[in-house]
Amino acid sequence: MSHFDILIVEDHPMMIRSITASLAVLHPQAHADCGVVIVGSLMQAKKRLLRRREPPGLVIADLNLPDSRGLATLRALREVAPGIAIVVFSASDDKSTEQAALDLGAQAFISKSALPQNFVQKLQPFLPGSATPCAPGLSVPASAGEAPHHPVDLLTERQRAVLAEVASGYRNREIALRLKIGEQTVSTHLNTIFQRLGVQNRTQASMQYMAWVKAHGLLG
């Protein structure tokens, strides 16, 4: 594809944050003003695809949406844009569903339970080899708000400080002592951090933090 042009079809905010965070690792330009659209239903996706003279270079789609379920979602996207590259991002770990999706022409099938590095590895082959200038056209709908370039930007300075300690391998009690805050406060911060980053554990949160640090040139 001539520019970074991706359609994300997903209705869960945490999953959207996880996908966009992974894209930010792969391409710093994969954000709201650089050719990424986020829609939350099959109907919205079809409208976006039908309005474009050329399909986007990649669609990342959940199979289960408010107005469509299972492989019917993939079939519908294929009908609208038969030559499009589709990566399925699904809550299902069922091998038969994965094989059926691949048989229907999905380029890859990624479970939502996959660790961030696995998602990145599977997504990489379907992205451009190098970052290119931002292009007009697709953009995040106004209703989606002005998303930051990376989910870590959503955190407060204190939350980032807690996350930095987590990424350094410290446990809650140690973090509390180092930052001179209560251990319960650390736990509260971590719950918020996990929610805002769209992750489930310390390892995933640490990976996103290190990607953010690298993107901002903060590695010594």
Score class of each variant (00 low, 15 high):
Leu74Phe: 04
Leu74Val: 05
Arg75Pro: 02
Arg75His: 11
Arg78Glu: 03
Arg78Phe: 00
Glu79Lys: 14
Val80Leu: 10
Pro82Gln: 08
Ile84Ala: 13
Ile84Thr: 12
Ile84Glu: 08
Ile86Val: 15
Ala91Pro: 03
Ser92Ile: 02
Asp93Trp: 07
Asp93Ala: 13
Asp93Glu: 15
Asp94Pro: 01
Asp94Leu: 12
Lys95Arg: 12
Lys95Cys: 00
Ser96Gly: 01
Thr97Lys: 07
Thr97Ala: 10
Glu98Ser: 14
Gln99Tyr: 15
Ala100His: 07
Ala100Asp: 12
Leu102Ile: 12
Asp103Cys: 09
Leu104His: 02
Leu104Tyr: 00
Gly105Thr: 03
Gly105Pro: 01
Ala106Cys: 07
Ala108Arg: 06
Phe109Gly: 04
Ile110Ala: 10
Ile110Ser: 06
Ser111Gly: 11
Lys112Ser: 00
Lys112Leu: 00
Leu115Asn: 10
Leu115Lys: 09
Pro116His: 06
Pro116Phe: 08
Pro116Met: 07
Gln117Met: 09
Asn118Gln: 14
Asn118Cys: 11
Val120Lys: 04
Gln121Thr: 02
Lys122Tyr: 10
Lys122Asn: 05
Leu123Trp: 02
Gln124Asp: 02
Gln124Thr: 15
Phe126Ile: 11
Leu127Pro: 00
Leu127His: 00
Leu127Ala: 08
Pro128Ile: 14
Pro128Glu: 09
Gly129Cys: 08
Ser130Trp: 12
Ala131Pro: 00
Pro133Val: 15
Pro133Met: 14
Ala135Met: 10
Ala135Val: 01
Gly137Cys: 15
Leu138Ile: 07
Leu138Ala: 08
Leu138His: 02
Ser139His: 12
Val140Asp: 06
Ala142Trp: 14
Ala144Thr: 02
Gly145Asp: 00
Gly145Ile: 00
Gly145Arg: 00
Gly145Asn: 00
Ala147Thr: 05
Pro148Leu: 01
His149Gly: 03
His150Lys: 08
His150Glu: 04
His150Asn: 07
His150Cys: 01
Pro151Thr: 11
Val152Lys: 03
Val152Ile: 12
Asp153Lys: 06
Asp153Gln: 13
Leu154Ala: 13
Thr156Tyr: 12
Glu157Leu: 14
Glu157Asn: 14
Gln159His: 13
Ala161His: 05
Leu163Lys: 07
Ala164Tyr: 00
Glu165Asn: 06
Ser168Asn: 13
Gly169Pro: 07
Arg173Gln: 13
Glu174Leu: 04
Glu174Ala: 11
Glu174Lys: 04
Ile175Pro: 03
Arg178Trp: 02
Leu179Trp: 02
Leu179Ala: 09
Lys180Glu: 15
Lys180Gly: 13
Ile181Arg: 06
Gln184His: 11
Thr185Tyr: 12
Thr185Lys: 11
Thr188Ser: 15
Asn191Phe: 09
Thr192Met: 11
Ile193Thr: 05
Ile193Leu: 09
Ile193Val: 13
Phe194Gln: 09
Phe194Glu: 08
Gln195Asn: 04
Gln195Ile: 03
Arg196Trp: 04
Leu197Asp: 03
Gly198Met: 15
Val199Phe: 09
Gln200His: 15
Arg202Ala: 04
Thr203Val: 15
Gln204Arg: 12
Ser206Trp: 07
Met207Tyr: 04
Met207His: 05
Met207Ser: 06
Gln208Ala: 09
Gln208Val: 04
Gln208Ile: 01
Tyr209His: 08
Tyr209Glu: 06
Met210His: 11
Met210Leu: 15
Trp212Met: 03
Trp212Cys: 02
Val213Trp: 06
Val213Met: 15
Val213Ile: 14
Val213Lys: 15
Val213Phe: 06
Lys214Ser: 01
